[in-house]
């Protein structure tokens, strides 16, 4: 009576896909931030972390993670865009006057701008991957082995004020997207009851805020506190 393809195209199926992929992306972003915090520990720690990921499962981990992320981003974008498309069809003529109902409503600037913050983040992710993952391949030695000096690239790039500020500003959009996204994905997956919903709504603000602030601080820290010239000499440790 219900085949999986029809289910995926249904309005509820699309929400399940949005929620599930959103959950995966939030987990990814959280792990990504925690890993990136090694930049505060200096070049050695950051490069060791990057080399750990690159050599995990003989290099296959990164390939699998990349494929997974492309899939998750793709599905998330597709379901998000189709929600927007359905809305345009379903309310073809709007109201002359519209106002917020307030009260228990969860409609915010964040929830209204999911499409735009999402499109912005999609473009950001492509540029970010191109900029750093496929950026200059510097090499350094770590415990006698040659590894990629990703630290040097990151520090070099974030020492350019325009780039550091562009990254920092982009993270405001991440915060905007996650303020609604984090609690909404749990609601989309049907995981909230009356007791949990207000908690999840509050937690979304905290988690979204923390993730945005964490990513926002990284480029600014490098811009203001890490010297690009001295990076090669200052392997390991905070200055």
């Amino acid at each position: 009576m219900l085949d999986l393809r029809a289910a995926a195209w249904s309005s509820v199926g699309k929400k399940l896909i949005t929620g599930l992929t959103g959950l995966g992306l939030v987990v990814f972003v959280t792990v990504h931030l925690i890993g990136n915090l090694t930049i505060f520990m200096g070049a050695e720690a950051f490069n060791a972390y990057s080399d750990f990921l690159a050599s995990l499962l003989h290099g296959w981990f990164i390939v699998l993670a990349d494929l997974g992320l492309v899939g998750f981003f793709g599905l998330h974008a597709w379901s998000g865009l189709s929600v927007w498309q359905s809305k345009r069809r379903a309310r073809s003529s709007g109201y002359a006057v519209s106002a917020d109902a307030r009260g228990p409503s969860r409609k915010t600037a964040s929830s209204r701008s999911m499409l735009y913050s999402g499109i912005f983040l999609g473009i950001y992710v492509v540029l970010h991957v191109w900029h750093l993952k496929f950026g200059a391949e510097y090499v350094t030695t770590l415990h006698g082995e040659e590894v990629r000096d990703l630290y040097r690239l990151v520090v070099e790039q974030f020492n350019r004020p325009a780039i550091a500020l562009a990254y920092a500003l982009s993270m405001l959009f991440l915060g905007l997207h996650l303020r609604h996204g984090v609690w909404s994905m749990l609601q989309s997956l049907g995981m909230l009851n009356r007791r949990l919903l207000p908690t999840a709504y509050g937690a979304a603000l905290i988690l979204g805020g923390l993730l945005a602030i964490g990513f926002l601080v990284l480029p600014l820290y490098v811009l203001f506190f890490v010297d690009p010239v001295g990076t090669a000499a200052a392997m390991g440790g905070l200055r």
Binding site: S11, V12, K14, K15, L16, S82, V83, S86, K87, R89, A90, R91, D100, A101, R102, G103, P104, S105, R106, K107, S111, R112, M114, H180, W183, S184, Q187, S188, L189, G190, M191, L192, N193, R194, L197
Partner: peptide, 26 residues
């Protein structure tokens, strides 16, 4: 249209039906 979890529906519902019911549907 599809639901975006804005919650405006619950706010205007004269009977105060919670959007957690939408979670039940899912």
């Amino acid at each position: 249209g599809d639901c975006s979890n804005h919650g405006e529906c619950e706010a205007v519902c004269p009977k105060g039906i919670s959007i957690t019911n939408i979670g039940v549907m899912r």
